[in-house]
Design a protein around this nucleic acid. Sequence first.
DNA 1: GTATCATATCAGTGATTGATGATACGATGA
DNA 2: TCATCGTATCATCAATCACTGATATGATAC
Lengths: 120, 120
Amino acid sequence: MLFTTDSTGLAVKAKLFRGLGDPSRLSIVDTLRGGPLTVSELVTATGLSQSNVSNHLGCLRDCGLVTAEPQGRRVLYRLSDDRVDELIALAESLLADVARGVYECTRYAAVNGTQGSRLP
Amino acid sequence: MLFTTDSTGLAVKAKLFRGLGDPSRLSIVDTLRGGPLTVSELVTATGLSQSNVSNHLGCLRDCGLVTAEPQGRRVLYRLSDDRVDELIALAESLLADVARGVYECTRYAAVNGTQGSRLP
DNA sequence: GTATCATATCAGTGATTGATGATACGATGA
DNA sequence: TCATCGTATCATCAATCACTGATATGATAC
């Protein structure tokens, strides 16, 4: 895959984006933009299973996108940095103009089938 | 996976981030931040195979992150919007502070093994 | 101490991803 | 026209991902 040295930190940057590149994780992060929530509150808000939310939170936490604050037997999660919010806001702004393209994108990052072709 | 209605466009946003969430694609996009390039120039710059670059460009193009401009038998690619550059710059800024966490992140978006655990 | 609640971890699995090599397509120049 | 260059597409495949269900851990209440 090359990038053995990766002096530009490309792999790390890619990881950050991939952290936000899953609907479930993004749903969690997006929900947290409204303020800190516990795991069970996130489970309710997102409709995902508890173990699924916990797994994704583990990823987001490891990646530094969210921080965890134990409160008794609950754990309160919040976005780790305002720039996480900014990142999503910027993406939304961009999507306002190129959304159609993204909808039609079926290569990689696809929903149904790989390497789908565009209109013939 | 829920998100049947997706009134917030979460799946689309996730796709956008995932478009940037692969080292090869990010390498291409990052290279294009320096200015428009043809496919073969991108092949040289990234060290990826021609078919691989072309496939990723197809994804990025479909997603609206880059635009293609045929020039004879070459095709010139460029970032479709300044905000694509801003998005990466913002991510870099964020990474300057949370990079360590991302390095250590081995869940999903992982490099070696799935659901890797943090230090025992 | 025991029961219960909240969260985290684990094993297993189907589906998706990203890469490769071969090939097709289209445009240019000889 | 033919050869060649530049790009796109295709088939295939190993590796990874995200999910589920079960279980472990840890904290509070009784």
